[in-house]
Design a protein around this nucleic acid. Structure first.
Lengths: 160, 160
DNA sequence: GGAAAATATTTGCACAAGCAGGTAAGCGGC
DNA sequence: GCCGCTTACCTGCTTGTGCAAATATTTTCC
């Protein structure tokens, strides 16, 4: 079992580390947000992405990419949040196939309430991860990242 | 919307990047492995983890941690793989609560067949991600990781 | 030695995800 | 102006996941 070259093994190891850290954080956030605000991580992500558009609305597909979700999953996700009054859905004049979503005041409110918990949990989990020998290097690398300004991550760069 | 401190914002950004990259890789691997070998990423991960134990068996809970899965999900996952004859499940004498799993020859065979695709897909996706400005730094960081030897990542350090 | 607590795994249930298929709206050639 | 093709979103179905409760086995503490 050793004919696959070293580079591949390094990549695989990196991927395992990445997955492990992701799983750790994801689970922690999931539990915290669920318990305190009845929000899943994806739901929070969507609200947060919308808030970052600040006054702008997003199409379903942008949302789908931002949340790394299929479009069908996005439909239901938006429906859930809409049913809770956290965001509004309305079609826009210039292309009536498209549907725009926008945070409601309640949505902004809930996001503001959830953000501290989110950030705290994230910090705590990263600190915890930094104690695990396998994860520590990645945690450090993550911290040293971002020479970039507060640029719009993902693919949600433009309004249309 | 700007009272949360900078450190938190940096962490949040790092987390978004991590999640984005993870999603990208995960989706790509999922599709590739599913299409060619009817394996999900977690299933592959479990087979791979088992193979790394080389001759050893693992308990359900070790497996659960290795795959970042709940124990119930692990039960069903192992059942699926067992039904396909890829691994065996048997209780061990010293603690009859515990259940050990071990790869069958077929399991090793399938893993060997799937690994090249896995590695290739991983490499391709990483290359692709390196072209995205938001992800590139993390990809590089990931590559420069692993000064560590081929150490057992995750929590699966010992045999018991 | 035996009851009580702890540990390892499995099962019932509800929920969210992806895929495939369906409908509505724009776009292009004629 | 009409027909075909593409795009954007929604819905039915199947599957995997987590939580909570059930079961079996070991360990602990009198």
């Amino acid at each position: 079992m050793g004919i696959h070259d070293d580079a591949a093994e390094i990549r695989a190891g990196g991927w395992r580390t990445l997955a492990a850290l992701h799983g750790l954080i994801d689970t922690a956030l999931e539990k915290a947000l669920q318990a305190e605000h009845r929000l899943s991580v994806v739901e929070y992500t969507v609200l947060e992405a919308l808030s970052r558009q600040d006054g702008w609305h997003m199409r379903m597909q942008q949302l789908a990419r931002a949340a790394a979700l299929s479009s069908s999953a996005t439909t239901r996700l938006v429906s859930r949040l809409e049913d809770r009054g956290l965001l509004g859905r309305y079609l826009c004049a210039d292309d009536r196939r498209g549907i725009y979503t926008e945070l409601t005041p309640q949505g902004r409110e809930l996001l503001a309430a959830a953000r501290p918990l989110h950030d705290t949990t994230l910090e705590a989990t990263l600190t915890e991860a930094a104690d695990l020998p396998e994860l520590a290097p990645l945690v450090r690398a993550l911290h040293d990242l971002e020479p970039t300004p507060a640029a719009p991550a993902k693919g949600l760069t433009a309004k249309v």
